[in-house]
């Protein structure tokens, strides 16, 4: 038995906005009966970009029905600009969570919304354009574009995650090596991102000191205080930061570790990559 939230149960038992809209001006169909779940989304959008009506038809399990119903509730009566960034994570949040193996149901909702809005804007989304690259998983027709997006949006790290969210790799498994490659690439890209940010904005002395102070007060001190410790900023000299550990930290045997891992780590994360933290003897 799945551990569905009450919200999921409520929505598959009594789904809202079921049916079709004959004069819809934004529609999309995702999934297929072969794969075991499919969603057809209908929207009516007026000249002010307000989604005046949204309905769905779903072939699928309880969580597929609940995800579809949730999506229509989240977009009905809203402006296109306010909902176009709704992702599968927002749907999961609305539902109060989904079992790991059912994440792909929420992805189907996000996909349908994106495709329907493209349809409304008159952007062609026939098979050719929709693939966003090559079809990687032949069994479920999943493209590398979708896999990359889902990895980024949900911070996925394993093949198992990718299968839970997109179904890719869940049948014959022949695409698993390719998924592994994509995961490795995406993780690599993610690592490079903060470096780029740091390079972009060289900090002024004033701004650096400000950021160091804020990070210590808002990030580092609360963590230390949980262990009845404290920290004091003594001095900043270029990228050398001098601090003193107080409270239970002051005579802690692992204070060096705290200094390097926590204090320096956080300052490097939030301020600059090459900050060096020293313990002040004052």
């Amino acid at each position: 038995m799945w551990d569905y939230t009450d919200k999921v149960k409520e929505l598959y038992k009594n789904p809202k906005n079921v049916g079709s809209i004959p004069d819809a001006n934004a529609t999309a169909e995702v999934g297929s009966i072969v794969c075991g779940d499919a969603l057809k989304l209908y929207m009516k959008i007026d000249e002010n970009h307000v989604i005046t009506d949204a309905k769905f038809e779903t072939f699928g399990c309880g969580s597929a029905i609940a995800s579809s119903s949730a999506l229509t509730e989240m977009i009905k009566g809203k402006k296109v600009e306010d909902v176009e960034h709704i992702s599968n994570q927002d749907i999961v949040k609305f539902l109060g969570g989904l079992p790991d193996e059912k994440m792909h149901c929420s992805v189907m909702g996000g996909e349908a919304l994106e495709k329907a809005l493209k349809n409304w804007r008159g952007i062609k989304t026939d098979r050719e354009e929709d693939v966003e690259g090559e079809i990687l998983c032949q069994c479920f027709g999943v493209t590398d574009g979708l896999i990359r997006r889902v990895i980024r949006e949900n911070h996925l790290t394993t093949v198992e995650d990718v299968t839970n969210y997109t179904k890719a790799g869940g049948a014959c498994g022949s695409c698993i090596p390719k998924i592994e490659d994509i995961l490795a690439e995406e993780l690599d890209n993610k690592k490079k991102e903060p470096e780029k940010k740091a390079e972009k904005k060289p900090l002024t002395n004033m701004r650096r000191i400000q950021l160091i102070d804020e990070t210590i007060n808002n990030v580092i001190r609360p963590i230390l205080q949980e262990d009845r410790g404290d920290i004091e900023l003594i001095d900043v000299d270029g990228k050398d930061v001098y601090v003193a550990l107080r409270g239970s930290c002051s005579n802690c045997l692992v204070s060096n570790v705290t200094l390097k891992n926590l204090v320096e780590g956080k300052l490097r994360e939030f301020v600059e990559e090459d900050i060096i933290v020293h313990e002040s003897q004052k």
Partner: peptide
Amino acid sequence: EFIEGEAILLYLDD
């Protein structure tokens, strides 16, 4: 045909 088994089971469970 055209409907999904888990959904049927959940409705039966109800």
